[in-house]
């Protein structure tokens, strides 16, 4: 989770990633930021994020992202 927060801060600084639950809804992360984020997450956590996972529910908070990452890792 800590590494995830670091990645998020590298992509878009100045957001309270620990507590924010509206990263997509409030446009803290736009679609270009999502592409960078997906590339970074796939690299870092050795997962493949399919298009179908790119929904606000999976990216609105760091917690939701972490849950998606863990799930994709388990699914292998």
């Amino acid at each position: 989770m800590e590494r995830l927060i670091e990645i998020l801060e590298e992509i878009e600084d100045g957001v309270d990633y620990e507590n924010c639950t509206t990263l997509i809804d409030e446009h803290y992360l736009d679609s270009l930021a999502i592409i960078s984020l997906v590339a970074e997450l796939e690299d870092e956590f050795d997962i493949v994020i399919p298009t179908v996972e790119i929904i606000p529910d999976n990216f609105n908070s760091a917690k939701a992202m972490w849950e998606m990452i863990t799930r994709l890792q388990e699914e292998g």
């Binding site: 590298e10 679609s31 270009l32 592409i35 960078s36 590339a39 970074e40």
Partner: peptide, 10 residues
């Protein structure tokens, strides 16, 4: 780099 790299595909 990490910023401009993903920008090409985008």
């Amino acid at each position: 780099g990490k910023y401009y790299g993903p920008l090409i595909a985008s």
